[in-house]
């Protein structure tokens, strides 16, 4: 499981820092769940999810205000003594001293947001989910062909980048060359993007590094793209049987997600870009419920039946 520092959340969600000790900015959060500490403020600390971000909304703040001072102090002291990553107050509410006192005592960051509580929680969970999603960096090229996210794989030097270049020239878009950061954003959904440092750059042997965005314009690139189909390029092997029909579906697994895979043998004179385009079109046809191979099979079967009669 990955984690991310509090600092990133502050910057991304535009939170106001009310109190924060310098070292606590780098505290890592490793769960995308949120806790609203209503029950804790009522003194019930069993199963307290102290590793989560604590969100204080209007209810919590109002409840604290009307609480007896001694009791309030006791519960707040106990609350902040747990190693909570941070407490966020929503709706831009004023933060009374009794909260800050105990936050400072245990050096827990206190942040504030202008958003309403539900909206803030929504945004927090959305952001944390995307940041904490399982991820992996894979060698390959990710291109968007007719809206289909195609992940080109294969050995170094087989011509993945050259194929991608030809695809870009034909009006398709580059997501990432060489290194693709793949994130599992939902149960059956992978999204790929380029590491920020090398975004929209490509390496072509013999020429060197090229900047696709500068060369082909913004229309030729896209920042991230869900992966739909994996295409594995390999040197043509005369011993191996390649799929002639396309009736059987093969898969590859990335982060536990099954991704349809096709293997394309590479031989001089084969225009890989066109083959990739066709694979994308075929994938879309299949998605729409039309399988060319099955269709041909059906026609053939109908003819055979006709002959028998």
């Amino acid at each position: 499981m990955s984690s991310l520092p509090v600092e990133n959340i502050i910057n991304t969600l535009n939170l106001e820092v009310i109190y924060c000790d310098q070292d606590t900015l780098s505290i890592d959060i490793d769960t995308s769940d949120i806790n609203r500490p209503g029950l804790q403020f009522a003194g019930f600390f069993d199963y307290f999810a102290h590793d989560r971000i604590q969100v204080l909304g209007k209810v919590e703040m109002t409840y604290l205000r009307q609480l007896d001072e001694d009791i309030r102090g006791r519960y707040l002291d106990k609350f902040f003594s747990y190693d909570i990553p941070c407490a966020i107050i929503s709706r831009g509410m004023d933060i009374p001293d009794y909260i800050l006192h105990y936050a400072k005592k245990y050096k827990r960051p206190v942040l504030r947001s202008d958003m309403t509580t539900t909206k803030l929680i929504n945004k927090l969970i959305g952001y944390l989910d995307s940041q904490l999603a399982p991820r992996i960096t894979k060698h390959g090229v990710l291109v968007d062909v007719y809206g289909v996210g195609i992940f080109l794989m294969g050995e170094s030097g087989i011509g993945k980048s050259e194929t991608a270049l030809e695809l870009i020239k034909r009006g398709h878009r580059l997501v990432a060359d060489d290194a693709v950061e793949i994130k599992k954003v939902a149960e059956q959904r992978l999204v790929g993007e380029a590491p920020e440092l090398i975004r929209h750059f490509m390496e072509i042997r013999g020429i060197g590094i090229i900047d696709i965005k500068a060369m082909y314009g913004v229309g030729a690139v896209i920042n991230n793209k869900p992966l739909d189909l994996a295409i594995y390029l390999e040197f043509w092997d005369n011993e191996k049987e390649y799929d002639r029909l396309g009736l059987v579906e093969d898969y590859t697994e990335i982060l536990g997600v099954k991704l349809p895979k096709i293997v394309i043998p590479v031989r001089p004179g084969r225009n890989l870009a066109i083959i990739v385009e066709v694979a994308a079109r075929n994938w879309r046809l299949k998605k729409l419920g039309y399988n060319s191979a099955k269709e041909l099979d059906n026609r053939l079967n109908a003819l055979i039946r006709g002959n028998e009669e």
Partner: peptide, 26 residues
Amino acid sequence: NKYRSEVLVIKNNKIGNGKSLLSILA
């Protein structure tokens, strides 16, 4: 690239392919 073996460069939990320039730079 002179060798047939797979060469991986690893920093923290990020893995780069040692045979690919961009992947190392990333």
